[in-house]
Lab assay of single mutants.
Amino acid sequence: SIVTKIISIVQERQNMDDGAPVKTRDIADAAGLSIYQVRLYLEQLHDVGVLEKVNAGKGVPGLWRLL
């Protein structure tokens, strides 16, 4: 499923980069989806406690990390 793919992308990127959070844009590119589509999935995963959003604010790139 797309959700499983997104989780594995975040996991893979974090492992490659010493646990650093992953940008929404990088996840979207790797999943082959638009940034808006991916954001909806990321928000859902956040709501159920799978991911945390590391930063927030208007015009700030979203950074995500697995919990």
Results as ranks from 00 to 15, higher is better:
residue 3 V to S: 07
residue 58 K to R: 10
residue 45 L to E: 00
residue 61 P to T: 12
residue 55 N to V: 08
residue 65 R to G: 04
residue 30 A to N: 04
residue 33 L to T: 03
residue 65 R to C: 07
residue 32 G to R: 06
residue 40 L to A: 10
residue 15 N to W: 11
residue 26 D to S: 04
residue 61 P to K: 11
residue 3 V to N: 04
residue 11 Q to A: 13
residue 25 R to F: 06
residue 28 A to E: 03
residue 19 G to R: 06
residue 56 A to T: 11
residue 56 A to Y: 10
residue 62 G to C: 15
residue 59 G to P: 04
residue 30 A to C: 06
residue 2 I to G: 02
residue 6 I to Y: 01
residue 67 L to Y: 11
residue 51 L to R: 00
residue 28 A to N: 00
residue 32 G to N: 08
residue 46 H to S: 13
residue 37 Q to H: 09
residue 34 S to Q: 06
residue 13 R to V: 05
residue 7 I to R: 03
residue 28 A to V: 04
residue 13 R to F: 14
residue 37 Q to R: 11
residue 37 Q to D: 08
residue 27 I to G: 01
residue 42 L to I: 02
residue 6 I to L: 09
residue 23 K to H: 10
residue 27 I to Q: 15
residue 10 V to L: 15
residue 40 L to N: 07
residue 44 Q to D: 08
residue 31 A to F: 03
residue 39 R to I: 13
residue 6 I to D: 00
residue 64 W to A: 00
residue 58 K to Y: 07
residue 25 R to A: 12
residue 51 L to M: 11
residue 19 G to M: 06
residue 12 E to V: 08
residue 9 I to V: 06
residue 9 I to L: 05
residue 31 A to H: 01
residue 5 K to A: 07
residue 50 V to E: 01
residue 51 L to V: 09
residue 21 P to N: 03
residue 67 L to Q: 08
residue 30 A to G: 07
residue 66 L to S: 03
residue 67 L to A: 15
residue 57 G to L: 05
residue 37 Q to A: 10
residue 47 D to C: 14
residue 49 G to N: 04
residue 17 D to A: 15
residue 50 V to T: 05
residue 4 T to C: 15
residue 42 L to R: 00
residue 21 P to C: 08
residue 6 I to K: 00
residue 65 R to Y: 10
residue 6 I to E: 06
residue 7 I to L: 10
residue 63 L to M: 13
residue 47 D to Q: 15
residue 50 V to M: 07
residue 54 V to A: 03
residue 17 D to Q: 15
residue 18 D to S: 13
residue 40 L to W: 14
residue 10 V to S: 00
residue 40 L to Q: 10
residue 61 P to C: 14
residue 12 E to L: 10
residue 29 D to P: 01
residue 1 S to L: 11
residue 51 L to A: 01
residue 54 V to K: 02
residue 16 M to A: 12
residue 52 E to K: 04
residue 45 L to I: 04
residue 66 L to V: 11
residue 41 Y to Q: 02
residue 67 L to E: 04
residue 61 P to E: 15
residue 25 R to D: 09
residue 52 E to S: 06
residue 11 Q to I: 11
residue 35 I to C: 08
residue 43 E to F: 07
residue 35 I to L: 11
residue 44 Q to T: 09
residue 17 D to W: 14
residue 54 V to R: 01
residue 59 G to K: 06
residue 60 V to T: 13
residue 6 I to A: 01
residue 22 V to D: 00
residue 52 E to R: 04
residue 13 R to P: 02
residue 35 I to K: 04
residue 33 L to R: 02
residue 60 V to M: 14
residue 40 L to R: 12
residue 55 N to Q: 09
residue 60 V to P: 10
residue 65 R to M: 07
residue 44 Q to F: 15
residue 42 L to D: 00
residue 3 V to Y: 15
residue 22 V to C: 05
residue 66 L to R: 02
residue 22 V to K: 02
residue 36 Y to T: 12
residue 30 A to R: 07
residue 12 E to D: 09
residue 13 R to C: 08
residue 67 L to G: 09
residue 26 D to L: 04
residue 30 A to V: 05
residue 35 I to T: 06
residue 52 E to G: 07
residue 48 V to W: 15
residue 48 V to A: 15
residue 28 A to C: 03
residue 47 D to R: 15
residue 21 P to G: 15
residue 31 A to W: 03
residue 60 V to N: 13
residue 7 I to V: 07
residue 31 A to S: 08
residue 45 L to T: 01
residue 6 I to N: 07
residue 13 R to E: 04
residue 65 R to F: 09
residue 62 G to S: 14
residue 4 T to K: 14
residue 11 Q to D: 04
residue 58 K to D: 14
residue 43 E to R: 07
residue 24 T to K: 02
residue 23 K to R: 12
residue 11 Q to K: 13
residue 31 A to T: 08
residue 21 P to V: 06
residue 21 P to M: 05
residue 20 A to I: 06
residue 47 D to Y: 12
residue 53 K to D: 09
residue 9 I to G: 01
residue 47 D to V: 13
residue 21 P to D: 03
residue 5 K to C: 12
residue 27 I to N: 01
residue 26 D to V: 08
residue 16 M to G: 08
residue 56 A to E: 09
residue 56 A to S: 11
residue 62 G to P: 15
residue 31 A to P: 01
residue 29 D to C: 09
residue 67 L to M: 11
residue 59 G to C: 08
residue 67 L to H: 11
residue 34 S to H: 06
residue 40 L to V: 12
residue 67 L to I: 14
residue 58 K to W: 03
residue 5 K to P: 00
residue 58 K to L: 11
residue 53 K to C: 07
residue 45 L to V: 02
residue 49 G to I: 13
residue 54 V to W: 03
residue 36 Y to V: 11
residue 58 K to E: 13
residue 43 E to W: 10
residue 56 A to Q: 11
residue 2 I to H: 05
residue 46 H to L: 11
residue 59 G to N: 09
residue 18 D to N: 15
residue 3 V to L: 15
residue 6 I to C: 03
residue 34 S to D: 09
residue 8 S to L: 12
residue 56 A to D: 12
residue 40 L to G: 08
residue 9 I to W: 06
residue 10 V to Q: 00
residue 22 V to N: 01
residue 34 S to E: 06
residue 49 G to T: 02
residue 17 D to N: 15
residue 26 D to R: 03
residue 58 K to V: 10
residue 6 I to T: 00
residue 23 K to I: 03
residue 12 E to F: 12
residue 38 V to Q: 00
residue 37 Q to F: 11
residue 46 H to A: 15
residue 24 T to A: 04
residue 18 D to E: 10
residue 46 H to Q: 11
residue 4 T to F: 13
residue 16 M to H: 10
residue 61 P to S: 13
residue 61 P to F: 13
residue 36 Y to E: 13
residue 54 V to T: 05
residue 46 H to G: 05
residue 12 E to R: 11
residue 48 V to M: 15
residue 26 D to C: 04
residue 66 L to E: 02
residue 11 Q to Y: 13
residue 9 I to K: 02
residue 52 E to H: 04
residue 35 I to W: 08
residue 30 A to W: 05
residue 2 I to M: 12
residue 8 S to T: 10
residue 25 R to G: 09
residue 53 K to T: 03
residue 14 Q to T: 08
residue 22 V to H: 01
residue 48 V to T: 09
residue 15 N to H: 10
residue 32 G to T: 02
residue 39 R to P: 00
residue 7 I to N: 00
residue 48 V to I: 15
residue 29 D to M: 13
residue 40 L to K: 13
residue 63 L to K: 08
residue 6 I to R: 00
residue 26 D to Q: 05
residue 7 I to M: 07
residue 2 I to R: 04
residue 24 T to E: 15
residue 59 G to Q: 06
residue 41 Y to E: 01
residue 52 E to Y: 05
residue 25 R to W: 07
residue 33 L to P: 00
residue 46 H to R: 14
residue 62 G to F: 14
residue 33 L to D: 02
residue 62 G to L: 15
residue 7 I to G: 00
residue 60 V to C: 13
residue 50 V to G: 00
residue 39 R to C: 11
residue 20 A to T: 07
residue 65 R to V: 08
residue 6 I to P: 00
residue 27 I to M: 01
residue 44 Q to C: 15
residue 27 I to L: 04
residue 65 R to I: 10
residue 4 T to Q: 14
residue 35 I to H: 05
residue 26 D to T: 09
residue 61 P to I: 10
residue 31 A to I: 14
residue 59 G to E: 06
residue 2 I to A: 04
residue 30 A to F: 04
residue 12 E to Q: 10
residue 19 G to V: 03
residue 44 Q to P: 02
residue 49 G to H: 05
residue 60 V to D: 14
residue 51 L to P: 03
residue 29 D to S: 12
residue 66 L to K: 02
residue 18 D to W: 10
residue 46 H to C: 15
residue 2 I to L: 09
residue 51 L to I: 09
residue 41 Y to T: 04
residue 22 V to I: 07
residue 4 T to L: 13
residue 17 D to S: 15
residue 59 G to T: 06
residue 62 G to Q: 14
residue 38 V to N: 00
residue 48 V to Q: 14
residue 35 I to D: 05
residue 64 W to N: 00
residue 3 V to K: 12
residue 9 I to Q: 01
residue 41 Y to I: 14
residue 9 I to R: 01
residue 10 V to F: 15
residue 40 L to C: 12
residue 17 D to G: 15
residue 19 G to T: 05
residue 46 H to T: 12
